[in-house]
Design a protein around this nucleic acid. Structure first.
Lengths: 226, 226
DNA sequence: ATATCTATGTAACAGATGTTACGGAGAGAA
DNA sequence: TTCTCTCCGTAACATCTGTTACATAGATAT
């Protein structure tokens, strides 16, 4: 294992650990670094996933390849990213798609048993790994909340309340262009404009350029409950 | 700690461990069992969450209480369930809602430090805890996929393909009433009926009572990609 | 100044979905 | 049988949202 592992610090699994300690940790850990050329097959859909991958260099994708030959990219990872971390410890640990390299890539693989051993020997690693999974859960929860907003008005209300909490002010400065905001909400830009006008006409908000003022906070919060 | 901990076996954290070992594990672990009366306040929204809770008995809820006084139940837990497991190891570990008991309840609390210690000493506990988080991630991922289906036809196609894989047959027996299925998809029952008829008229499927036959599998899969 | 480009507002139309109401089929009870 | 209840299909209508097209304001470059 004569290898430069400083890139591991870019990964949340080792971010809190200094290079010297990382080197020491990995010396006794059975790891494998594999080099892939561009467009190489890293793992096939349905294959057993018993190891976690850390991208040391390059970029990879997880693709769903359909019988028709069409492929859809499910996820994209680059240097420092980790993949497979939730799969190895789940009951059904099969890759949900085909893993391929988009560029030449170098990947450090950690076997499930190695991870368990690292967790037991290095509290910091254990805590990092648990944080990794936990943050993922919270992120997914937030995404589900957003997706659960059915109508455009609900999405807007949710967005405004979030911004209100972030900015601590009923008068909100839009952090992005309306085009970007609409895209983030998964709706069309004209639909966003139209609904904002409706809400102004109904007295919910005031608008001027990229400033929106919440006229009735309670109305907004109440609306999200019906 | 003279206490009957056999109920812990109902929890995924200890399910794989026999009662004797559980008792031994917990003897040296600093845990706290707290008894709550009905409708008691267990934790307030925004409060720091540095411990995980395992419900030994009773039922609790996480509620969002709005300024208007309206409350919405965010989650519901009962005997054997665990809460707070993703919060304690995340950066922002504040309760997202108010935790209250719906019935008299007994809760075993494990401090973050205790969990780390259990993970280090008991590989089985470590693996169970990691599985718990991992399964949650996969479940949320699936939920997001479902929610991402925009149109009713997409939801139906996704549902049919899932059932096709489950049942291993192009002729699918609906596992629930259409009313339930519609509710699960987040749409109205008549809307589901109407769209099923449309799909039949367009030659995608055949239907008879609670049986649906996929006439063109490829059409369905292709459709989900556009 | 002029031209150009981008973000935005606006309107008209089409399509998708929710809402509501009604009737029929089938299961189970009296 | 007859009644009742649930599930389901169906239709008419209302509403929401996407689509497309066009106009304008402001920024920027030449």
């Amino acid at each position: 294992m004569v290898q430069d592992l400083s890139v591991l610090q870019k990964s949340p699994l080792f971010g809190t650990i200094n290079t010297h300690d990382i080197k020491k940790m990995m010396e006794n850990a059975p790891t494998r670094i594999v080099t892939f050329s561009k467009d190489a097959l890293i793992a096939e859909e349905g294959e057993n996933c018993d190891r976690l991958g850390i991208i040391l260099s390059g970029e990879i994708e997880i693709q769903k390849i359909y019988a028709s030959g069409k492929t859809v990219t499910m996820a994209h990872f680059k240097e420092g990213n980790i993949f497979g971390e939730a799969l190895i410890f789940s009951k059904v640990h099969l890759y949900p798609g085909t893993v391929v390299s988009r560029t030449p890539a170098q990947i450090l693989f950690l076997q499930k048993s190695t991870i368990i051993s690292l967790c037991r020997k290095h509290p910091e690693f254990l805590e990092n790994f648990l944080s990794l999974l936990s943050e993922r859960i919270l992120m997914l929860n937030k995404k589900i909340k957003e997706l659960s907003m059915g109508t455009i008005r609900q999405k807007i209300a949710y967005f405004l309340l979030e911004e209100y909490e972030k900015q601590g002010n009923l008068t909100i400065k839009l952090p992005f262009s309306k085009e970007i905001i609409a895209e983030h909400m998964g709706i069309q830009r004209p639909s966003l404009s139209r609904e904002l006008v409706n809400m102004r006409e109904e007295g919910w908000i005031d608008m001027e350029k990229n400033i929106i003022h919440i006229k009735d906070l309670q109305q907004l919060t109440d609306f999200l409950l019906d």
